[in-house]
């Protein structure tokens, strides 16, 4: 149990030994008598000026272009990033569903913190937590999904995503209401892209998470009719149509091909601005800045 008060009050209370102590009125029994504090006093600023002590500052050189950015090769905490590829100019067709989450899908469901934060500088390693907290809409398992390449059920989502990536299978994730609420941690978007994700379709997004997905070159889409979330089956193939014409305030189409051979097409919305469309085309916002298009 912890309480917060001013430093003066905390120190007085540490001498009194009980929080039930009003230093303005109460005394502390001592030597057969009673000690009372006078109100605290102290200088606002040091009369002799500040002593900077042992300075911990290192200024950057005027020209840093010769400085090597050091990442030890065997590091498991740091990994240099490689730019995500630019959009290939085509519609996103026949996407495999990696995971459809049900209920809350916060950043901590998508990329849990805790011990994983040790790897926050290593995208490959921290991606081991991808959707570890996500509740699978088909069967309700947490952090697991069907591996559609091997047919194995209840596999860790990150392992399935890695299989898909290695197999050249592009995948989509489907989320529920307010996908990505909570932290602004960029890993929750980067990990998806790193493991081969191309689109997240949700009933709705938390704003920061939606922007982070856009920055990393994913498509962040919402069902125009939130009830269409229910249409998505576990082994359905998803196609996003009209991507070449992606423009502000112009919905795209989502074609859902069900396992039984039937299909349907619904409208999906987005909030891309013209600048954000360029991020998507370039593969990421930073690709756009670097001119690496």
């Amino acid at each position: 149990m912890a309480f917060i008060g001013s430093p003066e009050l905390v120190v007085a209370t540490a001498f009194a030994g009980s929080i039930d102590f009003d230093p303005r009125r109460d005394g502390i029994a001592h030597d057969g008598g009673e000690f009372r504090f006078a109100p605290p006093s102290g200088d606002e600023l040091p009369q002799a000026g500040f002593d900077s002590g042992e300075s911990g500052y290192i200024a950057p050189p005027a020209d840093g272009s010769d400085v090597e950015v050091v990442i030890v090769p065997e590091s498991n905490r740091l990994e240099r990033l490689t730019p995500f590829p630019a959009w290939d100019g085509r519609d996103l067709t026949d996407l495999t569903l990696l995971l459809k989450t049900q209920g809350k899908t916060t950043t901590d469901h998508i990329s849990p913190a805790g011990a994983w934060l040790r790897f926050r500088g290593h995208l490959g390693n921290i991606s081991g937590n991808l959707f570890a907290g996500g509740v699978n809409a088909f069967g309700g398992g947490t952090g697991t999904t069907l591996n559609q390449l091997s047919g194995e059920a209840d596999q860790p989502v990150n392992a399935v995503a890695r299989d898909y990536k290695e197999g050249g299978v592009r995948w989509a994730a489907v989320g529920d209401e307010n996908y990505g609420e909570g932290s602004s941690r960029e890993h929750a978007a980067m990990e998806l892209r790193h493991l081969g994700g191309v689109v997240v379709i949700a009933r709705s997004f938390a704003r920061i998470a939606e922007t982070n997905l856009k920055k990393q070159g994913l498509l962040a889409l919402t069902f125009s009719d939130p009830a269409d979330y229910e249409l998505i089956g576990e082994t359905d193939k998803l196609s996003i149509l009209g991507v070449a014409e992606l423009a502000p305030e112009r919905p795209l189409e989502l074609r859902i091909e069900h396992a039984d051979g039937s299909s349907e097409t619904v409208s999906v919305n987005h909030t891309y601005t013209e600048a954000q469309v360029e991020w998507f085309r370039a593969g990421s916002a930073l690709n756009m800045i670097s001119g690496r298009v």
């Binding site: 990033l81 930073l286 690709n287 800045i289």
Partner: peptide, 8 residues
């Protein structure tokens, strides 16, 4: 790490 990708 991300800033490195900006190429600045």
């Amino acid at each position: 790490l991300q800033f490195e990708l900006a190429g600045l």
